[in-house]
């Protein structure tokens, strides 16, 4: 494994992209940063601009209005970068399946690298998912 990928696994900065979620997943993502879970232990930081991000945390259905913007944000993330889909809605459509405003799932719009299911996934699940992602990257 080269140094670049190792560094990436040591300090993944995440950008949080909500594409029409119900907030639950978003809260749980933020929760991961707070004292009980403290993702900074793993060097994970929430950043304010996709330019700084190494990973996009996508939550929610892909609504029509979000779709071009999400793609735009993905393009603005410097590569190498990964996309993490969080929550049932972003995996499929969850309970919102069939809505006229969500024709596509997240992975039909963005190249999702890892899926973290749950409605909402517990912070533990998110951390486990991210850890698995890091292992995956390390194995690359």
């Amino acid at each position: 494994m080269n140094l670049k990928m190792k560094a990436l696994t040591k300090s993944p900065w995440v950008y949080h992209l909500s594409t029409g979620s119900c907030n639950n997943c978003d809260i749980e993502i933020l929760d991961c940063l707070t004292p009980r879970f403290d993702l900074e232990r793993f060097g994970i930081q929430l950043v304010g601009s996709p330019r700084h991000a190494d990973a996009l945390l996508v939550t929610g259905n892909m609504t029509l209005k979000s779709m071009p913007r999400a793609l735009e944000v993905y393009n603005q993330m410097p590569k190498p970068g990964v996309v993490i889909a969080i929550g049932t809605c972003s995996l499929g459509h969850g309970i919102f399946d069939g809505s006229y405003i969500c024709p596509k799932t997240v992975d039909e719009v963005l190249p999702v690298d890892i899926y973290i299911p749950g409605c909402p996934p517990k912070p533990e699940a998110i951390i486990a998912g991210v850890a698995k992602l890091l292992n995956k990257l390390a194995g690359k």
């Binding site: 459509h93 309970i95 919102f96 809505s99 006229y100």
Partner: peptide
């Protein structure tokens, strides 16, 4: 952006 207008479902 977050409108999920769910009726058909």
């Amino acid at each position: 952006y977050n409108h999920r207008g769910i009726e058909k479902l």
